[in-house]
Design a protein around this nucleic acid. Structure first.
Lengths: 237, 237
DNA sequence: GCCTAGGTCCCGTTC
DNA sequence: GAACGGGGCCTAGGC
């Protein structure tokens, strides 16, 4: 591939030709390969994918994705850091391994439709609207939570888990604040309860769950457990 | 594309040519497009991806994936069911929308390296080693949990959440069993505690967490709360 | 390396 | 549609 080329396509390459292609480009390029194959995964779980057409993507960081004709999720995958080896037998076999945990994917390829190597230089990514930003807003403007609130510690660590935001209310009582960027569910309530149970062994403490909404059961549970829910208005800024 | 062809490649297509390509194939084929673009997402959160080379995958179920040069996760995406429209301006603009929640991705393309439409017929997928199978094993061989255990109800629903497995021990005391396929963490303990708190309002009850391992803090918490941990040996079958 | 918790989580299932 | 919980979750951040 010349210096100026962004990509290189091989149509219907032979097994040997694809092996060479992979070893030439796997460390510098993203590989996109469309094949007829079956796949075996073994590791934390175990799976088989029977013969079919699948799209294989291999990134230079070691990521391996095997996509089918639908769904956002790959059918099989290997995360960054995984190795890739190939063997040529009756079929072409690709094996990707990771160490921790020990996991392996074996792709048995009977037919290669095409393979592309691309030189991919991605842009910079920025995101807004995360939970972290809710916390930052409350730290900057504590009255958004309630009048008289004073933030003390972000990500306060306890043996029961890490508290999003610890503070005190206007009376000086400790307040544990748990933030959720989406509708709060039962698990958010137990999470908050867990922190409260820890701290209340030492001090009187209030627990407040901050979220744009809450499910019915979560709301009933939070009341039953003497905790508070504060609806978060995203335009509060 | 002829009946027998598995795929069709366009090299450096014009904007208009890609628009036609997309409208011809988006309902029947998976599209794989490598471009120089920037991306704007708005919906549950908001993000921007600045100019760079990115791989766009569009599946016929509406899934949209925008991949960069590393990581398993797409930089931006849209799940199945999303629409796709294109506009030709100074740049080529692709817009993908979903209704619930209302979310939009805008891809502004300045250069198209190549586009492929593939006819993808995926194989059948099977997986072993899930939590569900742990539960099935205990239902089939209750003594694997403990001598005298009797399973009563799988996925027993309560206002505090759904219990993996409800049963009775040899003394007739209710037992709530929570299974984890990996190492159990703090959240698993609070989850179990939540169910126990519900049921113990009505009956005496034990809570057992079953997993191949447990973190230090989770183990301390489970003891403190009077719950039990049962180590799961995967070869128990 | 372990552990905690978020995520535009996705996804299946159940009501 | 709402909600609950699993996932080979992945990923980031602490220690």
């Amino acid at each position: 591939m010349s210096f100026l080329e962004k990509y290189l396509v091989k149509h219907n390459p032979s097994f040997e030709s694809l092996q060479e292609f992979i070893s030439n480009y796997q460390n510098t390029h993203m590989l996109i390969i469309f094949v007829s194959c079956k796949v075996f995964y073994t590791g934390r779980a175990k799976s088989t994918l029977s013969w079919g057409d699948h799209l294989i993507i291999r990134k230079k960081d070691g990521t391996l994705l095997i996509h089918g004709s639908n769904k956002r999720e790959p059918i099989n995958w290997q995360p960054p850091g995984s190795s890739l080896k190939s063997k040529c037998r009756r079929n072409l076999i690709l094996i990707s391994r990771r160490r921790h945990p020990k996991e392996e994917i074996k792709i048995v390829i009977s037919k290669i439709y095409f393979a592309v190597a691309v030189d991919c230089r991605e842009g910079k990514f920025q995101i807004l609207g995360t939970e972290n930003q809710m916390v930052q807003q409350v730290i900057a403007k504590p009255y958004l939570l309630e009048e008289g609130f004073t933030p003390l510690k972000r990500e306060f660590q306890t043996p029961y888990g890490n508290i999003d935001l610890l503070g005190k209310d206007k009376k000086g009582t400790f307040v544990i604040v748990e933030f959720k960027r989406g509708k709060a569910q039962l698990s958010a309530v137990s999470q908050l309860k867990r922190y409260v149970e820890y701290l209340q062994k030492k001090h009187p403490v209030r627990g407040i769950l901050v979220a744009p909404g809450i499910t019915k059961s979560a709301e009933e549970l939070i009341k039953k457990w003497g905790l508070e829910f504060k609806k978060w208005l995203s335009k509060a800024s």
